[in-house]
Design a binder for these strands. Structure first.
Lengths: 327, 327
DNA sequence: TTGTAAGCGTTATCAC
DNA sequence: GTGATAACGCTTACAA
């Protein structure tokens, strides 16, 4: 059987209290006692049981991460960096893949509550506000607006949309299409489209949206992109994410459309992965490191200091441009 | 405060025991009582505390996943699929990023024990056998040999090396290089190199290894690949992973080396991501779905039936070839 | 400086 | 059918 605290106590010839004190560095202890306890812990190969500890009201030092998946390199990097930062601060991570499935996200949320996580970082799409409100856990959101009380971190999606549009325009494109989800559901990412529309209006150009949905498989996207490109209506395309942009680029090549001469393409996200393995793609870069810092800092603030007054808690970080060769 | 079981009991006018029974479907209960309890749970928005439950010896239904990172699409997909399968079986997942850092891996291992996970799936590289042996948790390993008792699932790395070599040879390459980690540490993946050497010998060709290490950054890899390609010694390269293969392909294009005419390239792993977004890359495909199935099944067997005799527990799954255009 | 005892939220055992 | 009660492994007043 796994050794428990009282076994250590017995082995060391002291009381359980003392062992607990040694483990937690509580109060005054003679060096000799400490040593005895350490020795006992070593000989028994003792590991404290976190569950019992958290049950006593201590923090679990676990953070739940709810994201729609990890195969998109942007999310993979974001999650990897979050994990890294949180680990440095002494937190471990439970990964919840909401997979664009409402039931699953709800299920995970309940599980996180049941497991007494100290907080949650969510970047998932589907769940409504109320469900998150009902947990009075510290939660911060990435690129999602949930509740007024909940801090939201995002990059400047409006500016990103403007920047992309302007970049294509400056490069000579006039028939600029936005390829992405046209449904505005009040999420911060909607503003990419708003930025595009706003800038197109300013430039006196007509705006066009070619709908692509997040949950379509790449194959399906490819087919509709192919049909679209064959019509040759666009000389510039803003994709609302890099993966879509790559499909457009591939398809354009297959159709012998010259990029950037006949068609300029710009993506969105700009993860390290994309910039390394698709260096030719021009894209709007989200400041990943800053996003991670803000998310973690913001969450830990809320965890350690929950009575904090709910000051303005939205952070919108500036985007930048990466010049590949597709513009 | 969060409602607890006794609150529900009070609300429903029954004893805590009864509530527990309702929750766990234990023994005989009158329909009326059940309903009262359900109602009380609903009005209080009660969530059972998993910690207390696990403390009582119940399973935690949490599986630890220890992997070296998630930015490699192969691992991202593997982890995503593992998570999905495990979720279907009622398990949740704690993600541990060992990040090729021994201390971190050890730290995570201890944490998993402390949190009473039901089992572990590991694909991490750095920790020695003993540390895993000491936990008497159910553990299964992907592509790593740890202990004789621990099941190992991998794809047929030897055959993969042979297949890659043969493919290049059949396509006309004679100066075939292997690009990967030359250090043989007894891991199953070492056999990719062995397969290459074996097949080269059989073909009467000289074998050459160009060393690339897993922990090098892409930039560093790029530089050494560039230097290598400039010498033009190879007319065929087997890369021990797809990401390296992509760097080779990129660099070859930069140097105006014609692929596949002057240089044939073959990668290794063949994730969906790579096949979708780099369809031109020929690669040895690991049977991801089968790997996931075997890992999960094998682990759950061990969890539910720990006294199982330690029958042969290594599974080596067949690889296949994806034909892009680089061979 | 160290020990005793109560309690965290749940479940299992035994009574009724 | 249902209810006391002890126990899981740990922490923390309160004593000593």
């Amino acid at each position: 059987m796994k050794p428990k605290l009282s076994d250590v106590a017995e082995e060391a010839g002291v009381s359980p209290t003392t062992v607990s004190r040694v483990i937690n560095n509580h109060g005054y202890l003679s060096a000799a006692t400490k040593q005895k306890v350490y020795d006992a812990m070593a000989t028994l190969n003792y590991q404290p049981n976190s569950l019992a500890r958290s049950l006593k009201g201590k923090k679990s030092h676990i953070i739940g991460l709810i994201f729609p998946g990890i195969t998109n390199p942007f999310f993979a990097e974001l999650i990897e960096k979050l994990e890294k930062q949180l680990f440095l601060q002494g937190y471990k991570v439970i990964l919840c893949n909401s997979a664009d499935d409402v039931a699953k996200e709800r299920n995970y949320l309940q599980m996180l509550i049941a497991n007494q996580v100290d907080g949650i970082i969510t970047g998932a799409h589907n769940l409504g506000i109320e469900e998150y409100q009902n947990t009075n856990l510290p939660i911060v959101a990435f690129d999602r607006r949930y509740t007024d009380g909940m801090p939201m971190i995002s990059s400047d999606n409006l500016q990103g949309g403007i920047l992309a549009t302007d970049t294509l325009y400056q490069a000579g494109a006039k028939n600029i299409y936005f390829m992405g989800n046209p449904n505005q559901k009040g999420n911060p990412t909607d503003r990419r489209l708003q930025g595009y529309r706003q800038q197109m209006a300013k430039l006196g150009l007509e705006n066009h949206v070619f709908p692509i949905f997040f949950d379509e498989t790449p194959k399906i996207k490819q087919v509709s992109i192919q049909q679209f490109l064959k019509k040759k209506q666009a000389d510039g395309i803003i994709c609302s994410d890099d993966l879509t942009a790559i499909l457009v680029l591939q398809t354009a090549r297959e159709l012998n459309i010259q990029v950037p001469n006949d068609l300029k393409i710009i993506g969105y996200d700009g993860s390290n992965f994309i910039r390394t393995y698709f260096p030719e793609l021009s894209t709007v870069v989200q400041p990943m490191d800053d996003i991670v810092m803000m998310l973690v800092e913001s969450l830990i603030n809320r965890i350690t200091n929950r009575e904090d007054k709910l000051e303005e808690s939205d952070f919108i970080l500036p985007v930048s441009l990466y010049h590949g060769g597709t513009v």
